[in-house]
């Protein structure tokens, strides 16, 4: 069932890679769907990332709001703070 599906779509670029990798690692149930120029990350109920993991992938301290630079679209309710970003639908 897709009743509580949430998704994030990013440009498939180097700048977006730390975010994409973090979503993949921190949400093992999520699926990554690649289309030309973009990737759609889908999950059920919730998808989230932490600043720590994104920074690790980037090799520097990342401000999570940098995701605005490469985010294409999303679906779900946003819950964010300095150290995490989540979209939920329960």
């Amino acid at each position: 069932m897709s009743e509580n599906k949430v998704f994030m779509i990013f440009q498939n670029t180097a700048d977006a890679q730390p975010f994409i990798s973090a979503f993949a690692q921190e949400n093992p149930e999520a699926t990554l769907n690649y289309q030309p120029g973009m990737v759609r990350i889908e999950g059920l109920g919730e998808l989230g990332i932490t600043q720590e993991v994104v920074s690790e992938f980037a090799g520097r301290a990342v401000d999570l709001q940098e995701l605005h630079l490469t985010l294409i679209s999303l679906s779900g309710n946003i819950d964010e703070d300095d150290d995490y970003f989540r979209i939920t639908r329960h």
Binding site: Q11, H68, S73
Partner: peptide, 11 residues
């Protein structure tokens, strides 16, 4: 995609 990155905020 640059426009669409704003669109996430608009949505």
């Amino acid at each position: 995609f640059s426009a669409q990155s704003d669109e996430s905020r608009h949505m």
